[in-house]
């Protein structure tokens, strides 16, 4: 770990985006919960916009594909462009022929892994229940669709508070569902666009600052 420091902006000129993988490697620690909510919200926002433009859907295969932009936008890039991976096999969980719930599932997994970054196999991070529920539902959407359940049923034994009651998550089927849950996490839902954009903008700015600092030390 760490011997291969990524080189944001190595191509020259000001850098306008960083991948989530670069961010994780530079900090060498996981993202925090607020950043997870924000990346989730912002990425689903851009995926929604892309869907409206009828752009092909693609699953997130690694954190290298999730790009955080200077202005706080978060986008999902094609795998081969960023990760240096060979193009995904056509058809199978590949590019354009996947569903919205599959994209959400893959994003949930990537975000969980970013929260889990650096932890050992036998360790598990304690997440706040709402974030754990969000990720759980994102990552399980395909199953939820298949079984046509209504959300929880017997799965979440530990949640008996009234507060938790109103936060109950039903199956996530769309980017909009994810965004609504992220907005509901805030005291004022209408602040979600500005708030989450600001969190991602700060994530970009602070990571670039760290990169500049580390480069100077080198």
């Amino acid at each position: 770990e760490g011997e291969e420091t990524p080189e944001p902006g190595a191509a020259g000129g000001p850098q306008d985006s960083l991948s989530l993988e670069e961010i994780l490697r530079l900090y060498n620690q996981p993202i925090n919960e607020e950043q997870a909510w924000a990346v989730c919200y912002q990425c689903c926002g851009s995926l929604r916009a892309a869907a409206a433009r009828r752009q092909p859907r693609r699953r997130a295969r690694s954190a290298a594909q999730v790009r955080v932009w200077r202005d706080g936008a978060v986008t999902l890039a094609p795998a081969a462009a960023d990760a240096g991976e060979p193009p995904p096999a056509a058809g199978k969980l590949g590019y354009s022929h996947c569903t919205e719930t599959e994209v959400i599932e893959s994003l949930g997994i990537i975000i969980y892994k970013a929260l889990d970054y650096g932890l050992k196999e036998n360790e598990e991070r304690e997440l706040s229940p709402p974030l754990e529920q969000l990720i759980d539902h994102m990552a399980n959407t395909v199953e939820a669709d298949g079984s046509n359940d209504e959300g929880y049923e017997a799965a979440d034994e530990g949640l008996e508070d009234e507060d938790d009651e109103k936060r109950k998550v039903s199956a996530i089927r769309s980017y909009r569902d994810v965004m609504k849950l992220c907005a509901a996490h805030l005291p004022t839902e209408s602040e979600a666009p500005n708030h989450y954009q600001a969190v991602c903008r700060a994530l970009f700015a602070e990571t670039m600052e760290l990169h500049t600092f580390l480069t100077k030390i080198k």
């Binding site: 900090y27 620690q29 996981p30 993202i31 925090n32 919960e33 950043q35 599932e105 997994i109 969980y112 892994k113 889990d116 932890l119 196999e121 036998n122 360790e123 598990e124 991070r125 304690e126 997440l127 754990e132 990720i135 759980d136 990552a139 399980n140 602070e206 990571t207 760290l210």
Partner: peptide, 24 residues
Amino acid sequence: KGKSLYKIKPRHDSGIKAKISMKT
């Protein structure tokens, strides 16, 4: 700055980490 604080517990077979691992 940028420091995230979080608690670590032993991985649980029924926990979210195990569920995510099974998917990947």
